[in-house]
């Protein structure tokens, strides 16, 4: 098992979004679903969108920590992993190897 998998958006061109108060709503033209993402979900989606070919989990956590002015500790990594799992369930993000 890869200890530091990379992640990417499933269909970036199919997404249209709007942000208010750092939260995000987005429409996925592939599934027809509309989603409401938290501040962290928004941050993860933004980071994934900036790296279309994929970004390793550790780099993703570091990037989010830098943007938030906090440290990339294990607690943040755990929350980001949970967020990625949630985005995968929504068919918005996927591990690159998948």
């Amino acid at each position: 098992m890869n200890p530091d998998p990379s992640w990417r958006l499933v269909a970036p061109d199919a997404l249209v979004s709007r942000s208010w108060d750092d939260e995000l709503v987005l429409y996925n033209d592939v599934t027809g679903d509309t989603h409401h993402l938290s501040v962290l979900g928004h941050a993860v989606m933004t980071m994934l969108a900036s790296r279309p070919s994929g970004i390793a989990l550790a780099a993703l956590v570091r990037g989010i920590a830098d943007d938030a002015g906090t440290s990339a500790d294990g607690e943040l990594a755990e929350v980001v992993e949970r967020t990625l799992a949630h985005l995968a369930e929504l068919r918005l993000a996927t591990p690159v190897s998948a």
């Binding site: 709007r18 208010w20 108060d21 709503v25 509309t34």
Partner: peptide
Amino acid sequence: LPKCDAFMRLVDSAFNYSVHGR
């Protein structure tokens, strides 16, 4: 009311949202 919350309530209240897609 946070605008994202208002947006999602409007999605739930729209009769033909899915007809229009994007």
